[in-house]
Design a protein around this nucleic acid. Sequence first.
DNA 1: ATGACTAAACCTTTTAGA
Length: 270
Amino acid sequence: MKLATWNVNSLTVRLPQVLDWLAANPVDVLALQELKLTDDKFPHAAFAAAGYQSVCFGQKTYNGVALLSRTAGQDVVRNIPGFSDDMARVISATFPLASGAIQGDTPPGIRVVGAYFPNGQEPGSDKFEYKLAWLQGLRAWLRSELQAYPNLVLMGDYNITFDDADVWDPEGMRDQIHCTDEERYELNALIALGLADAHRLFPQAPKSYSWWDYRDFGFKRNHGMRIDHILISHALQPLATGCWIDKIPRKNERPSDHAPVVLELALNHS
DNA sequence: ATGACTAAACCTTTTAGA
């Protein structure tokens, strides 16, 4: 079973690239962020023709998330229960597994949470305060979600780096957005709930990033940051067999500024 | 140089992203 996440920076612009990527990478579940379109404009038919069901949570101009999947997601939830938010940032669903795929799993299936974390713009700004409040809301909800769904994957654009290894210019980015102690505290608090950063469970090339600035030849110079993450619950950790960043789509004409991140699990999708 | 590039909308200029 493979799951992936990709911030596409406008699904309207990137739809052909998403379809091309799925054809070459037929993952079981793909979480998308920054759709930048309303639900009535979501291309369900184009994905269905490619063999994918889709659930979306969009809004005009900004944000917007979706889950594409081979089989229908169950118990779809939009945004963070218990945290009032007028931005479309989170969509969750359960994907069933073949019976007995995980010893004693109750309920059977994997809970997938796809999320577009707030950017925060600048430390100290109102948007930064909103980011911290959102992170606390996410954490409070995830604590109970993990109890209800021991097999859980939280993936998306976190807009936070774990540490200097995730940043091309750690000195230049010190205490800047995506790299502040406050943001990293919240990211580690998610880990402390019982999650692991799938990327670091496996050997990775140094200077592995998931986002590169469009400006100043950021991708060509590998001036990037690792801000797109896949966190997996402890129950899933023994089943993880690989996690990688696919830089190929970043080489496309008119690419998203983010690359997809893929997780492979030794599981059969039902 | 509060810049560079990309996208959307209040669209020839502003806002936001990261």
